[in-house]
Simulated assay, not measured.
Amino acid sequence: MRGLWAEEVSYSYGDFRIDGVNLKVNPGELVALIGPNGAGKSTLLKLIYGTLKPYKGRVLVDGRDIHRLSPGERAKLLGFVPQNHVPTFPFKVLDFVLLGATPELGPFGTPGKKHRGKARELLKTFGLDSYAEKPYTSLSGGQIRLLLTARALMTSPRYLLLDEPTSELDLKNALLVLQTVKKLAREGVGVLLVIHDPNLAYLFADRLVLMRDGRIIAQGKPDEVFDEMLLSEAYGIELELIDCSGETVLRPRLEV
Protein backbone atom coordinates (compact mmCIF):
# COMPACT_ATOMS: atom_id res chain seq x y z
CA MET A 1 0.00 0.00 0.00
CA ARG A 2 1.92 3.02 -1.27
CA GLY A 3 1.38 6.40 0.29
CA LEU A 4 2.02 8.49 3.38
CA TRP A 5 -1.04 8.42 5.64
CA ALA A 6 -2.09 10.26 8.78
CA GLU A 7 -5.13 8.42 10.18
CA GLU A 8 -7.23 10.12 12.88
CA VAL A 9 -4.10 11.77 14.28
CA SER A 10 -4.63 13.71 17.51
CA TYR A 11 -2.05 15.51 19.64
CA SER A 12 -2.08 18.16 22.36
CA TYR A 13 0.30 20.47 24.13
CA GLY A 14 -0.85 23.10 26.56
CA ASP A 15 -4.16 24.47 25.35
CA PHE A 16 -3.53 23.54 21.71
CA ARG A 17 -4.88 20.40 20.03
CA ILE A 18 -4.48 18.63 16.72
CA ASP A 19 -7.81 16.87 16.50
CA GLY A 20 -8.58 13.78 14.39
CA VAL A 21 -6.61 14.73 11.30
CA ASN A 22 -6.79 12.51 8.21
CA LEU A 23 -4.37 13.24 5.39
CA LYS A 24 -2.77 11.23 2.60
CA VAL A 25 0.15 12.07 0.32
CA ASN A 26 0.40 9.88 -2.76
CA PRO A 27 3.64 9.10 -4.59
CA GLY A 28 4.11 11.68 -7.33
CA GLU A 29 1.91 14.29 -5.64
CA LEU A 30 2.78 17.70 -4.22
CA VAL A 31 0.52 18.62 -1.31
CA ALA A 32 0.69 22.06 0.33
CA LEU A 33 -0.43 22.77 3.89
CA ILE A 34 -1.72 26.33 4.20
CA GLY A 35 -3.47 28.33 6.92
CA PRO A 36 -2.87 31.09 9.47
CA ASN A 37 -0.09 31.14 12.05
CA GLY A 38 -0.85 28.79 14.93
CA ALA A 39 -3.09 26.54 12.84
CA GLY A 40 -0.94 23.48 13.61
CA LYS A 41 0.75 23.02 10.23
CA SER A 42 4.30 22.56 11.51
CA THR A 43 3.09 20.37 14.38
CA LEU A 44 1.24 18.12 11.93
CA LEU A 45 4.37 17.86 9.78
CA LYS A 46 6.40 16.74 12.81
CA LEU A 47 3.71 14.19 13.69
CA ILE A 48 3.82 12.78 10.18
CA TYR A 49 7.63 12.62 10.19
CA GLY A 50 7.63 10.95 13.59
CA THR A 51 9.41 13.63 15.62
CA LEU A 52 6.23 13.87 17.69
CA LYS A 53 3.95 10.95 18.60
CA PRO A 54 0.15 11.28 18.54
CA TYR A 55 -1.85 10.19 21.57
CA LYS A 56 -4.46 8.87 19.16
CA GLY A 57 -4.28 7.64 15.57
CA ARG A 58 -1.24 6.61 13.57
CA VAL A 59 1.00 7.53 10.66
CA LEU A 60 1.78 4.96 7.98
CA VAL A 61 4.45 5.16 5.30
CA ASP A 62 3.84 2.60 2.55
CA GLY A 63 1.77 0.59 5.02
CA ARG A 64 4.34 0.66 7.86
CA ASP A 65 3.80 2.46 11.16
CA ILE A 66 6.28 5.34 11.31
CA HIS A 67 7.01 4.66 14.98
CA ARG A 68 7.98 1.05 14.32
CA LEU A 69 10.75 2.06 11.93
CA SER A 70 14.33 2.51 13.03
CA PRO A 71 15.76 6.02 12.55
CA GLY A 72 17.78 4.70 9.62
CA GLU A 73 14.76 3.11 7.93
CA ARG A 74 12.71 6.25 8.45
CA ALA A 75 15.42 8.48 7.00
CA LYS A 76 15.62 6.36 3.84
CA LEU A 77 11.87 6.67 3.30
CA LEU A 78 11.33 10.26 4.44
CA GLY A 79 13.37 13.37 3.85
CA PHE A 80 12.69 16.26 6.23
CA VAL A 81 13.58 19.94 5.98
CA PRO A 82 12.84 21.67 9.32
CA GLN A 83 11.64 25.23 9.70
CA ASN A 84 14.46 26.19 12.05
CA HIS A 85 18.11 25.24 12.01
CA VAL A 86 20.80 26.54 14.34
CA PRO A 87 24.31 26.10 12.83
CA THR A 88 26.73 24.43 15.21
CA PHE A 89 29.99 22.95 13.95
CA PRO A 90 31.39 24.80 10.90
CA PHE A 91 31.23 21.89 8.46
CA LYS A 92 32.27 22.58 4.91
CA VAL A 93 29.21 23.03 2.71
CA LEU A 94 29.93 19.82 0.78
CA ASP A 95 30.43 17.82 3.98
CA PHE A 96 27.19 19.17 5.44
CA VAL A 97 25.25 17.87 2.43
CA LEU A 98 27.09 14.53 2.68
CA LEU A 99 25.71 14.15 6.22
CA GLY A 100 22.41 13.45 4.51
CA ALA A 101 23.85 10.12 3.31
CA THR A 102 24.43 8.87 6.89
CA PRO A 103 21.28 6.66 6.97
CA GLU A 104 22.53 4.88 3.85
CA LEU A 105 26.14 4.58 5.01
CA GLY A 106 25.61 3.81 8.69
CA PRO A 107 27.30 5.67 11.57
CA PHE A 108 30.79 4.48 10.64
CA GLY A 109 30.50 4.51 6.85
CA THR A 110 32.52 6.81 4.63
CA PRO A 111 31.00 8.62 1.65
CA GLY A 112 32.34 7.32 -1.64
CA LYS A 113 32.72 8.79 -5.10
CA LYS A 114 29.03 8.20 -5.85
CA HIS A 115 27.92 10.13 -2.77
CA ARG A 116 30.29 13.02 -3.40
CA GLY A 117 29.14 13.22 -6.99
CA LYS A 118 25.51 13.35 -5.92
CA ALA A 119 26.23 15.99 -3.27
CA ARG A 120 27.98 18.19 -5.83
CA GLU A 121 25.08 17.80 -8.25
CA LEU A 122 22.65 18.88 -5.53
CA LEU A 123 24.80 21.89 -4.69
CA LYS A 124 24.79 22.80 -8.37
CA THR A 125 21.00 22.42 -8.54
CA PHE A 126 20.59 24.97 -5.75
CA GLY A 127 23.31 27.33 -6.97
CA LEU A 128 25.68 26.58 -4.10
CA ASP A 129 28.45 24.69 -5.91
CA SER A 130 30.88 27.62 -5.62
CA TYR A 131 30.57 27.42 -1.80
CA ALA A 132 31.44 23.70 -1.56
CA GLU A 133 34.68 24.17 0.39
CA LYS A 134 33.49 27.05 2.57
CA PRO A 135 32.12 26.62 6.12
CA TYR A 136 28.35 26.42 5.96
CA THR A 137 28.10 28.68 9.01
CA SER A 138 29.24 31.52 6.73
CA LEU A 139 26.16 31.22 4.51
CA SER A 140 23.12 33.46 4.74
CA GLY A 141 19.88 32.21 6.27
CA GLY A 142 18.37 31.78 2.82
CA GLN A 143 21.36 29.82 1.55
CA ILE A 144 21.15 27.51 4.55
CA ARG A 145 17.49 26.85 3.65
CA LEU A 146 18.65 25.71 0.22
CA LEU A 147 21.42 23.63 1.78
CA LEU A 148 19.00 21.85 4.12
CA THR A 149 16.86 20.88 1.14
CA ALA A 150 19.92 19.53 -0.69
CA ARG A 151 20.91 17.48 2.36
CA ALA A 152 17.41 15.99 2.66
CA LEU A 153 17.64 14.72 -0.92
CA MET A 154 20.87 12.75 -0.45
CA THR A 155 19.05 9.46 0.29
CA SER A 156 16.59 9.92 -2.63
CA PRO A 157 13.64 9.59 -0.21
CA ARG A 158 10.25 8.33 -1.37
CA TYR A 159 8.57 11.19 0.48
CA LEU A 160 9.83 14.68 1.20
CA LEU A 161 8.48 16.87 4.02
CA LEU A 162 9.38 20.56 4.02
CA ASP A 163 8.48 23.10 6.69
CA GLU A 164 8.48 26.61 5.20
CA PRO A 165 11.16 25.85 2.57
CA THR A 166 10.78 29.31 1.01
CA SER A 167 11.21 31.35 4.20
CA GLU A 168 14.14 33.78 4.05
CA LEU A 169 14.45 33.21 0.31
CA ASP A 170 14.16 35.88 -2.35
CA LEU A 171 11.63 35.26 -5.11
CA LYS A 172 14.18 33.72 -7.49
CA ASN A 173 15.34 31.11 -4.97
CA ALA A 174 11.84 30.48 -3.65
CA LEU A 175 10.79 29.59 -7.18
CA LEU A 176 13.93 27.45 -7.57
CA VAL A 177 13.01 25.36 -4.52
CA LEU A 178 9.39 24.97 -5.58
CA GLN A 179 10.31 24.11 -9.16
CA THR A 180 12.79 21.52 -7.88
CA VAL A 181 10.31 19.80 -5.56
CA LYS A 182 7.65 19.96 -8.28
CA LYS A 183 10.06 18.14 -10.60
CA LEU A 184 10.69 15.53 -7.88
CA ALA A 185 6.95 15.00 -7.55
CA ARG A 186 6.68 14.48 -11.30
CA GLU A 187 9.41 11.84 -10.96
CA GLY A 188 7.35 9.96 -8.35
CA VAL A 189 8.32 11.48 -4.98
CA GLY A 190 5.46 12.35 -2.62
CA VAL A 191 5.95 15.91 -1.36
CA LEU A 192 4.24 17.55 1.61
CA LEU A 193 5.18 21.14 2.38
CA VAL A 194 4.07 23.85 4.75
CA ILE A 195 3.96 27.23 3.06
CA HIS A 196 2.64 30.62 4.20
CA ASP A 197 2.03 32.10 0.75
CA PRO A 198 -1.30 30.74 -0.56
CA ASN A 199 -0.58 32.09 -4.04
CA LEU A 200 2.63 30.08 -4.39
CA ALA A 201 0.80 27.04 -3.01
CA TYR A 202 -1.92 27.53 -5.61
CA LEU A 203 0.61 27.74 -8.45
CA PHE A 204 2.66 24.66 -7.55
CA ALA A 205 0.56 22.21 -5.52
CA ASP A 206 -1.51 19.36 -6.88
CA ARG A 207 -3.64 19.53 -3.74
CA LEU A 208 -4.14 22.11 -1.01
CA VAL A 209 -4.89 21.32 2.64
CA LEU A 210 -6.27 24.27 4.62
CA MET A 211 -5.84 24.17 8.41
CA ARG A 212 -7.23 26.27 11.23
CA ASP A 213 -7.21 25.69 15.00
CA GLY A 214 -5.63 22.24 14.73
CA ARG A 215 -8.13 20.88 12.20
CA ILE A 216 -8.27 20.44 8.47
CA ILE A 217 -11.20 22.54 7.31
CA ALA A 218 -10.80 21.95 3.56
CA GLN A 219 -8.68 19.96 1.15
CA GLY A 220 -8.81 19.34 -2.55
CA LYS A 221 -7.53 20.63 -5.85
CA PRO A 222 -6.32 24.25 -5.74
CA ASP A 223 -9.41 25.56 -7.55
CA GLU A 224 -11.63 23.80 -5.00
CA VAL A 225 -9.92 25.29 -1.94
CA PHE A 226 -9.39 28.77 -3.37
CA ASP A 227 -12.78 30.11 -2.28
CA GLU A 228 -13.06 33.70 -1.08
CA MET A 229 -15.42 33.02 1.84
CA LEU A 230 -13.54 29.91 2.99
CA LEU A 231 -10.12 31.57 2.91
CA SER A 232 -11.38 34.80 4.47
CA GLU A 233 -12.82 32.83 7.38
CA ALA A 234 -9.64 30.77 7.80
CA TYR A 235 -7.26 33.75 7.80
CA GLY A 236 -9.57 36.14 9.66
CA ILE A 237 -9.28 38.86 7.02
CA GLU A 238 -11.44 39.79 4.06
CA LEU A 239 -9.82 38.35 0.94
CA GLU A 240 -10.68 38.39 -2.73
CA LEU A 241 -9.68 36.39 -5.78
CA ILE A 242 -8.71 38.37 -8.87
CA ASP A 243 -7.75 37.39 -12.37
CA CYS A 244 -4.22 38.47 -13.26
CA SER A 245 -3.35 37.69 -16.89
CA GLY A 246 -5.28 34.45 -16.72
CA GLU A 247 -3.95 33.42 -13.29
CA THR A 248 -6.02 33.45 -10.09
CA VAL A 249 -4.43 35.58 -7.37
CA LEU A 250 -5.54 35.92 -3.73
CA ARG A 251 -5.18 39.32 -2.08
CA PRO A 252 -6.66 41.32 0.80
CA ARG A 253 -9.78 43.23 -0.19
CA LEU A 254 -8.57 46.80 -0.38
CA GLU A 255 -10.66 49.91 -0.04
CA VAL A 256 -8.86 52.80 -1.70
Score class of each variant (00 low, 15 high):
5 W>K: 01
6 A>T: 07
6 A>I: 09
10 S>V: 06
12 S>A: 15
17 R>K: 08
28 G>P: 01
37 N>D: 10
38 G>K: 03
49 Y>A: 14
51 T>A: 14
56 K>W: 05
57 G>V: 10
58 R>I: 05
59 V>P: 10
62 D>E: 02
63 G>E: 00
65 D>N: 15
72 G>Q: 02
80 F>A: 14
80 F>N: 14
82 P>E: 09
83 Q>E: 12
83 Q>S: 12
85 H>D: 02
87 P>K: 12
87 P>W: 14
95 D>A: 13
96 F>E: 04
101 A>E: 09
101 A>W: 04
102 T>P: 10
103 P>C: 09
105 L>S: 08
106 G>T: 05
110 T>W: 05
115 H>F: 09
117 G>P: 06
118 K>W: 08
123 L>I: 11
125 T>P: 06
127 G>L: 11
127 G>S: 15
127 G>H: 13
131 Y>A: 02
134 K>R: 15
136 Y>N: 14
136 Y>M: 12
137 T>Q: 10
138 S>G: 14
142 G>Y: 06
143 Q>W: 09
143 Q>I: 09
143 Q>N: 11
151 R>F: 03
155 T>I: 08
161 L>H: 07
166 T>Q: 10
168 E>N: 15
169 L>D: 15
172 K>G: 01
175 L>T: 09
175 L>S: 02
177 V>L: 00
191 V>F: 01
193 L>T: 00
194 V>R: 02
195 I>Y: 08
198 P>A: 00
200 L>Q: 06
202 Y>Q: 00
209 V>C: 04
211 M>A: 00
211 M>F: 01
212 R>C: 01
223 D>H: 11
229 M>E: 15
229 M>H: 13
230 L>Q: 01
232 S>C: 13
232 S>L: 11
242 I>W: 08
247 E>F: 06
256 V>G: 13
256 V>K: 05
